[in-house]
Design a protein around this nucleic acid. Sequence first.
RNA 1: GGUUCCGUAGCUCAGCUGGAUAGAGCAACAGAUUUCUAAUCUGUCGGUCGCAGGUUCGAAUCCUGCCGGGAUCACCA
Length: 613
Amino acid sequence: MEFLNEVKEGFIQAVKSCFDTDLNSGEVLINETRKEFKGDFTFVIFPLVKKLKKSPAEIGDMLGHWLVENLNEVVGFETIQGFLNLTLSDEFWIRVLRQINSTADYGSFPANGQKVLVEFASPNTNKPLHLGHIRNILLGWSCSKILKANGFDVKNVQVINDRGIAICKSMLAWQKFGNHHTPQSAGVKGDHFVGSFYVKFEQAFVEEYKIFQQSDAGQKLYQSEGNGKSPEVFFKEFKNQYFNQYSTLGAAAKEMLIKWEQGDPDTIVLWKMMNSWVYEGFNATYDQMGVSFDALYYESETYLLGKKAIESGLNKGIFYKEPDGSVWINLEDVGMDRKILLRSDGTSVYITQDIGTAQQRYEDFGVEKMIYTVADEQDYHFKVLFEILKRLEEPFADGLYHLSYGMVDLPSGRMKSREGTVVDADDLMQEVIEEARSVSAERGEIAALPQSEQDEILRKIGLAALKFFIIKVQPRKRMIFDPKESVDMQGQTGPYIQNAYVRIQSVMRKASSFDTTLTDEYTTLSEFEKTLIRNIMQMPDVIREAGKTYDPSILANYAYNLAKEYHRFYHEVRILNAETDAARAFRTTLSENTGKVLLKVFDLLGMEMPERM
RNA sequence: GGUUCCGUAGCUCAGCUGGAUAGAGCAACAGAUUUCUAAUCUGUCGGUCGCAGGUUCGAAUCCUGCCGGGAUCACCA
């Protein structure tokens, strides 16, 4: 807290002056005083006891006296056990507020000259986005914003997994069952339209597999390879192999993939058309969420990258070749396994692509940091990838970070596409907005506004409920998403925070008829007012911390606490009809700056504030 | 089995590099508006911080072991 520098310095001087001992700033422990004690800030003096060879109470009292006598900011103290509680002067608080009030873009740090790339979203093109993507996108987007506020030059990118067997399944099903329909003719959003054919493929495949299971060939297979397993278990385990070796649908899909890889014109045309439908759908979803990208990487363009890296790795002796021609790296010396990088047939695997893509990005942007927002099931993958890039001595190797997050579960357990429990992103957003609509209708505050304005407000409220519910949880923790709780608008929620902001805006609209210039005449600050200032003066630290740890949840919880303090203040203290003009000016300024901070933090979290609600 | 993450109130979550009597929200119950938006505020109820050791003046926090749960360990992506 830069606002407290003088007090901290004073403490060091006090120790020097009272005990003739030098302290470095790392040894100074300062906290906010707990509510149940008198004071504003607390120095913990236990650590000094050994050094100074005196009792905690004695040290606290001596330092407290010295500080009151020598520091203008300190007007009182109390020593309780090993804690020195200081009370700071009203001038101090007003000065802090004045500083915040006059700081343009308070909470943002100056450019630090470093470039960072943040990857998030990265969907497959065979299905629409779901709840898991929402967590991913919120985290990536918010981290991107937070890093910008910390002075980085940030590029947002996503990798679109637009090739492979999955999209071929959709393509095949569309050929078979599509009747030349398009999203437009069917009246369905493009990504959902394509996704429905993926589902149709799976259904047809399951049918085909069932028939196979009952056929002579299937029964014979079970007899010879069943090994005493029940037919159910056996055929479940055999499914993949069936797809690859027996299925006609599987063969057709694989053939389509091969045609795609050979650049067969008809296949490419179909592929482009269906992907374009998907992108249209994705873009609508991204718009609704309020996120955007600086660059897109398509897997169809990057999946062959990384071969050069194989060469150079082999030359450097980091990789080795097996007799069958496959290329490997051995990471057993750092507690990992052997990992294949090139198959014996010379084709590359996923991680090879990632090596190449990372190099490509470095060439494209010259970033020294890259953040990958990917679920924690890929923790090991990224550990391996980063280790390989380090051994290849890539210049960006030290700036790699896997922003790993836990899966989203439903109260009933994991989302499973087979059981139809996957929560669709578009549906979900629509639901929370509708919930906001019905809550709003009961209140009637915005009923007089034009419909388009109302819609915009309801969108902001609904999405804030959803987004806050997700982003308040620490990324690495697995979270349980209860749809019923996610639409709550009371208590620890996004709309609660918006409501604090809206109250402030309402006050400020009415305050415009007064002179609200801050003066030093107001000298009877209440605890509510001090607590609010104490909160808003923390913002830069919280933003820095969130940036250092890539953790937006810190900011989410901060915003909630600040909103809560404001609601309490609002309830307990008269603002516009304050007892004096000075008090009114102070409180409106305090309110305005609280609003400023809430707005800023909300923006960093990827949420918007309505002016009314 | 190896590696790794998680375990805090009935439920969902906070708890910063160790600091005072472990906090919020939801749920349940009881209150508050002649006054700036009641999506608000106040109060009551609710805890063996998974268990056991260790380090420390001090441990939910750090270390070790155990228990429970998830993820991962493919010539898949």
